Amino acid sequence: MEGQFGCSYERPARHIREYLTALRPLLRGEYVEYRGQTLTAVGQSAAPGATPPSVLVSAVGPAMLRIAGELADGTVTVWTTPETVADYIGPTLTRAASAAGRPVPRIVATVVASVTADVGGVRQQVADQMGFAAQFASYRSMFDRQRMSGLHETVVAGDETAVARAVRRYAAAGVTELLVSPVGSEKDVMRTIGLLASVRDET
């Protein structure tokens, strides 16, 4: 936010609340005159005949989840387990949506997965490539909640049976859409894609 986009990350929940307050009516083609502490939006963007798109917020902290439930159509999570979705993310999001009179929210979970015989190697690969994310406070708090040292522990890896079981656990936890990033060797990636296609066809 700060280094790449030049936006202050001092109070992200306040910023996303103001952003959504201005954005949602604009997407409906309505005139907006909004002046907040972090942004100003004045004008209208009309596209006759267009349907407003669904708006999802990347949220894992309680404040952001409440805002997503109140003002957006759901959330996109990252590096969360099925148990975390079922016990924390889903209930927090749904309570906020219900209190705001909004429909049941979408929960889009992003998962790193591999059908592989080298579970340790795959997890080390993910740790080497993306382990730095555990340094960010919002992700660190999520790993602490899940009693994990880093994101490599969230990788879904193993044989076809183990990975298929994990995918079904996300669905049972309330995930409406699962975004899977296959990792590992070329063979592992192809096996993972094949498994995901077969699981999808079952549902």
Rank of each mutant, 00 (worst) to 15 (best):
Y9C: 10
P12Q: 13
R14C: 03
L20G: 09
L20R: 11
T21L: 06
A22D: 00
L23K: 10
L23G: 08
R24Y: 06
P25W: 08
L26R: 09
L27F: 01
Y34W: 08
Q37N: 12
T38A: 13
A41R: 11
Q44V: 14
G49T: 06
A50Q: 08
P52L: 06
S54C: 11
L56V: 09
G61A: 15
G61D: 08
P62W: 06
A63T: 11
L65N: 11
R66A: 09
R66Y: 03
G69Y: 05
D73G: 06
G74I: 07
T75P: 01
V76N: 03
W79Q: 01
A86P: 04
A86Y: 07
D87C: 08
V108H: 13
A113T: 04
D118T: 10
V119P: 12
G121E: 13
V122Q: 07
R123T: 03
M130W: 14
F132P: 05
F132Y: 11
A134Y: 01
Q135Y: 04
F136K: 03
S138C: 07
R140T: 09
R140L: 08
M142P: 00
M142L: 13
D144E: 15
R145G: 00
R147F: 01
H152D: 14
V155R: 05
D159L: 08
T161N: 14
A162G: 10
A162N: 05
Y170C: 03
G174C: 12
E177Y: 10
S181K: 12
P182Q: 02
G184K: 09
V189H: 01
M190L: 13
M190R: 14
M190H: 09
T192N: 09
I193A: 05
I193E: 00
G194R: 10
L195H: 11
A197P: 00
S198E: 15
T203V: 15
T203M: 14
